[in-house]
Structure formats: C-alpha cells, structure tokens
Design a protein around this nucleic acid. Structure first.
Lengths: 232, 232
DNA sequence: GGAATAGTGTCTTTAAGACAATATTTT
DNA sequence: AAAATATTGTCTTAAAGACACTATTCC
C-alpha cells in the first residue's frame, strides 16, 4: 500500500494541454490548426497546445489560453474543458496525457491576426478526414464537435461564435452550422427572450431585406441553459 | 517557438487520477473515502486514487478502475471522467494535476468488502463539511455531486446505484436522493418504458403493500438520455 | 409592385407534472 | 376491512415545431 504513495516509483507521464478552437465562417465550422515544425509528426497539422509552464500558468486553463493567445492574439470568449485523452500509443515518446479543451471565437475577431501567423490556419471540419493530422487530434476534434453540438441544443454557447453585436439571423446560422440541422427562427427568438441574457443594440443592420435588430450580451450575465433540447 | 516543443525545458507537473465513487445507502448519498497514511495530509480523508502505472494501465480510465478495485474489490458499473483539477496551490509538493472521475455502484455489491478494508469508508455527503479532507478533494466531490445531479435529470445513470434487480420504488428513491427533490413516479415509469433499456424480471418482491415488479437492464443496451430534464 | 429577409400569431405536438382512481398485499 | 405500497388513467402545463401572416427594406 505504501507504494501507492511513493512519488518516485512511477514514470510521470508526458502531460500536455491542447485546445480545439472552433469558429463559423460562411456557414462552415472551422477548427484552428497549426503546422507542426518538429517531431513527432513534423509537417502534419495539430491542435494548438503544449506543455504547462509552471512559472507562467496558475492552472491548465491558463495553459490553454496562453497557447491560444500565441496563435490568435486573443483569449477566446468561451473556453471549457473537454476531457482527458491518455494512453500508451497516442505519442511515440511513451505514455502521454492531454487535457483537451474546446473553445469558441467569432472569426471576425481573429481573422486578420490568423492571416499573419502563417503556421496557424482555419481548417474546415469537412476537410479534416483528408488531412494528415498529428497524434489522435482528429479523434479529439470529433469528440469536441459532438460535445459542442450537444451543448448547442440546450444552451446559448453558440453566441460566442458571433460578433459582439449580432442579429438573430447570424445566431441562427451559427447554431445551424454547428448542429447541422435547421431550427425554427421562432424557437430561437423565444429562447433569446426567455434567457434574459441579451439586450437590444440601438441600431439596425440591413441584410437584403428588412433590416435586422442587433443584440448584444448583457453585462455580467451567466450562460443560459434550457430544460429541453432543440429537436434533432 | 521552438521552446514550445522542447520536452525537457519544463518541469512535468505531478499527475494523479482520483475518483469520486458514489452510492446511495438508506436514502443518503455516500462517497467512498480513504484515510491517508502518509504525507501530505496524513490522517486526513482523501479520494481513492494515485499515480498512473504505465506498466499496468493502458490509459487513465484503467488507473481509476484499478485504484477503485483495490479499495472495493470490484470495478464500478459506471465510471466517467469529471474534469481536471490543477494548480500550484493544491498540493504542497508543487504544481499538480488530477484527472478526476466519478463513479457509481450499488452499495449492496461492495458492502461486505468495504467493511474488511478498514482504511476505506463510506462518508455521507452531509457529513463532509465537518470532515478534515485532503487537498481540494472536498471541492472535487462537490463538483462531482453537481454533475451527477444534472445527469440524473436527463439520463438513467442512477440505475447504477441500484442492485441488478430493482423496483421502480428503489430507483425513484435513488434518483430523489441524488437530486434532493421528489419526482413523480408516473414520470419515472414513462421514462422506464420509453427508454427501452429494461426488462421485467419474472418475479415480484413484497414491500409492505402491493408487491413490486422487478426490473433489470437489458443485455448490451446503451444509456438512455432524454430530451427534457425532470423539473427542478 | 416584387423579392428578400425580419419578426409575430397561433395552432399543434410532445413529454412532464399533478393527482385521482384502481390494484395488490399484509395485518 | 384498513393500511400501505404499486400501478394506471387522464387532465393540465410548458416549451418546442410548424407554418401562415405581417413588416420593412431594396430594387
């Protein structure tokens, strides 16, 4: 029993933090990926992430944020733990553990920055199957996508893929892109109303037809969750 | 940029796996805790867990299971990742990371075994606030409890706190204990019916009044999730 | 006016809540 | 028969779906 507590007896596994940063561009869900410069898997695309720096990071959330900031120039508005992926076979260097996060950002907010960092790029989730991806990162993205889809059914998280001022039409498009199914505009409006998370921006925006009301998230509100899912 | 990938540059944080094993005994939610024998926090109660053994464990799920088996003599029927807890202050030895799991078991299945392992004990969640607990394990249990409560509202996971053959009344009691609120027996029966997860056991059991039908989980069914929550 | 998009009204559907009514078992 | 618990019947309620209708803007 003592051996359970002997800190030096076991090889400490390789521990990293990786993030799946999603954004919606032109009704397509995209993931931020970086071209790996060194082994293992040099030349392949991988998730932005890396090792904890115990001098800089208070915890792993900060590691995830720091790594994303290095790639995009900003901290994502939504960041949440996904799950741990671990095993003997996922990294050729040995038993490894990654604490995976998923995050959302409005592409408008980072677009210019991404373009200047040539190693980072938005990849459409539709192109992923044909891409050479490092480690089990394809699998991690798949799990993150499913989690995001589920969350979009009972919460307002997709707003974090919208700009600060957004229309119902924009939010509807983001949600439909994420869950890959159309939803009723009426249902969305009811949720916007009942969530009490949003306020009018005193401005409308034209869009080919009748101008649309702009909304923004109220100051210091928490994310609304609903008791029912939207239909799948 | 190269520094991000230099494996030797950073101190690898201390990595452990800890589990919150729940069971319901006499309408009270209990957590399995073990008395710590060595520092840090010797003498305090802590969650069952420990370091990954890369020679024995294929992944961290197995680490969680192995540690629980050492304490209870069996593998829990339900085991799921909770989240990672990390930081510079949670362990006096330095930056540490724990991948926390939560698990469910029917207390009938492990009762005798627990009694023989004097270092492990069921602790009622109501007694926890007054208990000297190691690390941030009190906080981890709290988060696990909330996650379990949420899950009980839209899934059948609480069945894993019931014995193999159970009655609707037993399941109702387990659910009510977890979510700390009464539910409608009718609603539960509708879910049992629509989930298609269960089958009759050809036997009834007396209980002070009319005998109750016994149910069991069908072979190879997956956990049912519902589109709505029970009311809170 | 017509096309396009935004927003509302309202009826239907679905699954949960409430609770009365019936069934079975023990004492 | 009374008490206790199990099970069913059925009406109500809450929130989503469907979809027609109105509103606004540009051409």
């Amino acid at each position: 029993m003592m051996q359970d507590y002997d800190i030096n007896q076991f090889k400490n596994p390789l521990f990293t933090v990786d993030s799946v940063l999603f954004t919606v561009i032109d009704s397509v869900l995209n993931v931020l990926m970086v071209k790996r410069l060194i082994e293992p898997f040099a030349g392949r695309w991988g998730l932005p992430g890396g090792f904890v720096d115990v001098d800089k990071d208070d915890n792993t959330d900060m590691t995830a944020r720091r790594k994303l900031t290095e790639k995009t120039g900003l901290s994502p508005r939504y960041l949440e733990q996904l799950q741990v992926f671990s095993g003997i076979n996922r990294d050729p260097r040995g038993f490894s553990v990654t604490s995976a996060y998923y995050a959302l950002v409005a592409h408008q907010a980072v677009e210019t920055r991404i373009e200047t960092v040539e190693q980072a790029s938005w990849i459409s989730v539709n192109e992923l199957p044909n891409l050479a991806v490092a480690f089990d990162h394809k699998h991690i993205i798949d799990i993150a996508h499913k989690r995001l889809q589920q969350k979009a059914l009972y919460s307002m998280v997709p707003i974090y893929c919208c700009p600060d001022h957004f229309t119902v039409g924009q939010l509807k498009d983001v949600i439909e892109t994420i869950i890959e199914k159309e939803i009723q505009r009426k249902s969305l409006m009811r949720r916007i109303e009942s969530s009490d998370m949003f306020e009018f921006v005193d401005q409308k925006v034209q869009s080919g037809g009748r101008s649309a009301q702009l909304y923004r998230v109220k100051k210091d509100v928490s994310m609304a969750n609903f008791e029912r899912n939207l239909s799948v």
